[in-house]
Design a protein around this nucleic acid. Structure first.
Lengths: 213, 213
DNA sequence: TGAGTATGTATCGACCGGCGGCCCATGCTT
DNA sequence: AAGCATGGGCCGCCGGTCGATACATACTCA
């Protein structure tokens, strides 16, 4: 068969990404295969490998877009919100987002690249940039803490929220949290915040070093 | 081929479980296949299916044993420990355990049963029983809180710790926390505890209902 | 009691459909 | 005419199935 030129490379690429995303959203990653994607878009399996190195590469791109979307929604959620509500808003938005795309979120959690190390840098950058909203929101609360402490607290609360949302979408562990994910998220955020403020109060300010333990 | 009777059914079962566990620990779940297991124990692939319904069934059993081991270590960690150190000890033990068995822990997180629901009850019970040490340890701190609040706080802190450890073993998200998992765990536990105590202090006791938000 | 036979079953391994990934002859488009 | 996007067959795997096999055992009978 020869060239079709019905779609440009870029169109074809987007077609593949869209088809793959919809398959994942509908039947989950177990129903996904190169043949299935190809069938959806009316091309042959081989064509996929002209556009993407392999399926992992394709999935990584889908995950990256999901991360972009999430980051966007996090940023939108806190614009024009009162400072003291921003962290709970972030948490709620994070949780809601994962609940809205459970299969794709599970993909993000469960998809592992074969071989042990080679997650591309741009992917890690996207993960890191999820932290940014949390750092921004914590900044006023931790105004006098050391930069290192601020980074640490942002990571902690982010990871905690992330953990709760992951447990909630992974149906294997869900009995623990399924009915009450949002409640637990609130609990985590509020109690952690209270802890931060309590530390600040006790030491006059948050001590730049070793303010805990 | 006929019966060998070199191993009893029970021995064979344990042989399979041991071989599978060692394959996972060494090369991870990607290197695992029925043929590979069979080769390790000197039997044919078909034999596996006399002992286990399928690979998922086998993996679930391995996960269950991992959960049992973890629970055991958690309980040991807090016996004879001063009350105020118990929660940090639990957290540290949890984290250390997952770091000691990273591939098997990843299996636990990432392994999904095909089809959406059918995680067996005994499996969910094992998950639930992980919560028990956390509830025990929180009890003295939350002596005057409602049972519902105590359950909630235990779940929250457990899920947070779980989330942090999972992020740390999943190499895809690791850049965030890899160098400092233990530090973040400490931060989470200490700050959350401070938050709980602060709530208790402010309201005289922890309010039985709606003590937050 | 011991040899010979019948029975049951543990085990094997070929087989099935499907997978990811590869590759290059084909034939359309320019 | 020529270059290249594309199709689709191919390879070596996979998980899982199942009928054939051959061994351990139970039984029979001398």
């Amino acid at each position: 068969m020869g060239r079709r030129s019905i779609h440009t490379q870029e169109e074809l690429r987007e077609l593949i990404i869209a088809a793959t995303t919809s398959i994942i959203d509908e039947v989950g990653i177990d129903g996904l295969s190169a043949r299935e994607i190809a069938k959806h878009i009316g091309y042959s399996p081989g064509t996929l490998y002209n556009m993407f190195e392999n399926l992992d590469d394709l999935l990584l791109i889908i995950e990256a877009r999901l991360l972009d979307d999430l980051r966007q929604q996090l940023l939108e959620a806190i614009t024009n919100a009162p400072a003291h509500e921003q962290l709970p808003l972030l948490a709620a938005t994070y949780f809601e987002f994962t609940q809205n795309h459970p299969k794709r979120w599970s993909l993000l959690i469960e998809h592992r690249i074969p071989g042990d190390h080679p997650v591309p840098d741009w992917y890690e950058d996207k993960i890191s940039s999820l932290l940014q909203p949390f750092e921004e929101v914590l900044d006023p609360i931790l105004a006098d803490a050391s930069p290192e402490a601020r980074r640490r607290h942002a990571r902690t609360i982010w990871a905690g929220i992330h953990g709760l949302t992951s447990l909630s979408t992974a149906n294997k562990l869900a009995t623990i949290t399924n009915h009450s994910g949002q409640v637990l998220i609130d609990d985590l955020v509020m109690t952690y915040l209270a802890g931060l403020q309590s530390s600040a109060r006790h030491s006059g300010r948050i001590a730049p070093e070793k303010e805990k333990r």
